[in-house]
Design a protein around this nucleic acid. Structure first.
Length: 299
DNA sequence: AGCGGTCAAGTTGAT
DNA sequence: ATCAACTTGACCGCT
């Protein structure tokens, strides 16, 4: 019933994704730069395939793909199209193979773009760059059949209602490839589930309910209530997040994530539901496996 | 081989 | 004013 998801990277398994910096790449001539990027992109496509095989073999039902899977894809100077990369078509073919594998084995794929992607910024250029990056996410999502591109609401800028209105307006302007995958997640600093649910209802965008963020930044409503309300925003299998606090719940900053999930932090209300829960824990695949054991074997 | 400095981007809040 | 934190270390270049 519950599908646990692994986020982006591995703790112990020797599967890793490569990255690149603009500074390093821009010191090279264009041809050499594209050759270098192609090598990294190809490596990452193959690493994704390995990751999916690992998930399939270990009963992990979802995998979050790092936004840097195609590094610097929309960078103003170093950005590129796949057709510019030597062997670009073959790289795309690997991603499509990942998509077929995920579909065949029921492994859900998601994205959670970086903090720089802000749809409600008062600066139109920030929004424009964000949309460009979301288009890139949607392009990869289409290859791999990822159905979620999950974002936080963004900044408050001193006026939450105006910020939410801008968010809503900009969601309405998104291209369909982004919009049909877009989800909103409550954060641990500014936007609670109660803040976001009206936007979700108005736009038809599902809410990714992060119960850890909700506990760090409460809105007076219960886990049970928000669970039910968030479920209603989904026309497909819902996606929620869970973590445990590194410093515990009493005293100190509750936001940093622990290596593992305390099974007591996993909401009782979720246990009988059909949903995906992404496990945000530093021990990565080890944390997913330990939580799975606690939830499914331990009775 | 190991380690230190650095890395595109936005926003917030602690210092 | 500066800076770490965020979903997350990985990379190059020096010794």
């Amino acid at each position: 019933m519950i599908r646990l998801g692994l986020c982006c990277i591995f703790h112990s398994q020797p599967i890793s994704f490569r990255r690149a910096t603009a500074k390093y790449l821009l010191a090279k001539a264009r041809k050499e730069r594209l050759r270098s990027l192609a090598e990294i992109c190809r490596h990452n496509a193959l690493a994704l395939e390995q990751a999916l095989h690992y998930c399939q073999a270990h009963g992990i039902g979802a995998f979050r793909i790092n936004s840097q899977i195609l590094p610097l894809k929309t960078h103003p100077q170093a950005g590129y199209d796949m057709k510019d990369l030597p062997g670009g078509e073959a790289i795309v073919a690997i991603f499509r193979r990942c998509g077929a594998f995920g579909r065949r084995h029921g492994i859900r794929m998601t994205f959670h773009p970086d903090q720089f992607i802000v749809l409600n910024s008062p600066d139109p250029q920030v929004v424009e760059r964000s949309v460009a990056d979301l288009r890139y996410h949607a392009e990869v999502a289409q290859w791999v059949h990822a159905d979620v591109i999950n974002l936080h609401a963004g900044g408050v800028y001193g006026d939450k209602q105006s910020a939410l209105a801008r968010l809503r307006a900009n969601i309405d302007r998104l291209p369909a490839s982004v919009r049909r995958r877009l989800t909103l997640e409550n954060d641990d600093r500014s936007y609670t589930p109660s803040d976001l649910l009206p936007v979700c209802r108005a736009t038809g965008i599902p809410l990714v309910y992060d119960v850890h963020h909700h506990r760090c930044l409460p809105d007076g409503l219960s886990v049970q209530h928000i669970t039910a309300t968030a479920l209603a925003t989904w026309q497909r299998e819902p996606l929620f997040h869970v973590s445990s606090p590194l410093n515990g719940w009493t005293g100190g900053d509750c936001r940093p994530h622990h290596d593992y999930i305390d099974p007591g932090d996993f909401p009782r209300e979720w246990r009988k539901l059909s949903l995906t829960v992404e496990v945000e824990a530093k021990a990565k695949e080890l944390a997913v496996q330990r939580l799975a054991a606690a939830l499914f074997n331990d009775r």
